[in-house]
Simulated scan of single mutants.
Amino acid sequence: MNKKRYTIECLTNLHVGSGDINYGTIDRLVQRDAVTDLPTIHASGLKGALKEFFDANNEINNDFFSIVFGSVPNSRKTKSNKQNIGSYIFNDSHLLALPLRANDAPYYMATCPEVFNKFTNANVPDINKAVLIGGERKNSQIEDLEENDFEEKDPFTEETTKLLKDQLGTKIIVLPFKEFKKYCNNLPAIARNYLENGESKNLWYEEVVPSKSIFWTDIIDGTETNEINKKIEDTFSKIEESSVQIGANASIGYGQCKFKSV
């Protein structure tokens, strides 16, 4: 088996709905991990999005869909098509980083040791206060953080700092898990309006994961190594060549994402 790890950068706001009934002020919530309660993209939604992405390319034949996904898209189904178990294994996508507004840059990418270590199998040490990388505390003024919320000294080694920058860029803030989760629990909520014959009938609110956020996922190729399956693998790599639409509201630009192999 060949496992590939990808980062998924949100080029636009993302809403992959949880489907849960909510009696709060936000009507439609995003999917969340059952253990950490952080935003996630369930494997079934990711698989469906990638299947639609390849379906839009008419040059890709049905053998590819059968091997990778287990069945061809509905638009291509005939009586001769049989549904089987696909050879590719899709996993949930985990949140890696969120953008936070700042004073000295458009945003800083926020993560936490627990989340980053799961992604890299690194050993970023636990912290009690925020650590700023690529900025100065007095000038940065990260949203909702005061100067005394930061560590006095950078506890990270040069190797750890380089690892963070390689994945998240030059402006980073590493938060304790509790603080990181606080931001994840206060995602933007966008007002939407239901119109009927041009008349407003209902105002409702939809939670979104903001653009520039980064997820990661593992996709496992369970096929045997041969010439045919090598061509399948090469075709699958097209997900890195252009954006993939994930989740709802494609018509208003939501869910455009960029895949990058790690």
Rank of each mutant, 00 (worst) to 15 (best):
K182L: 08
K162P: 07
A105S: 15
N148L: 05
N123M: 13
I228Q: 09
F236L: 11
T161K: 13
L168Y: 03
E152Y: 09
K181C: 01
F215D: 08
I228T: 14
E233C: 00
F116Y: 15
N193H: 07
V124G: 11
R101A: 11
S237Q: 12
L175T: 12
F180N: 05
S211A: 13
C112V: 12
I190W: 00
E199W: 02
W204P: 00
V174A: 00
L100H: 11
L195G: 04
T161F: 00
R137N: 14
D154A: 01
V131M: 00
N202E: 05
N197F: 14
I220A: 13
Y108T: 07
I219P: 09
K231A: 11
E159P: 00
A191V: 06
K162S: 15
P210E: 09
I190K: 14
E233Q: 08
K162Y: 15
F116N: 09
V209D: 03
Y107K: 01
P188H: 05
E196A: 10
I172K: 08
I142H: 02
N128P: 04
E233Y: 13
N202W: 10
L168N: 13
P125G: 08
N197L: 08
N226S: 07
D154I: 03
K231D: 15
G198W: 13
I172L: 07
L195I: 07
K162L: 12
V174R: 00
A189T: 12
N185V: 02
I127M: 01
C184Q: 11
E146R: 04
N121A: 15
K138V: 06
E224Q: 09
A122Q: 05
R137Y: 12
E136M: 05
E224P: 00
W216N: 00
A189N: 14
G134N: 06
E179C: 06
A191G: 11
F116K: 05
K118R: 15
S200L: 14
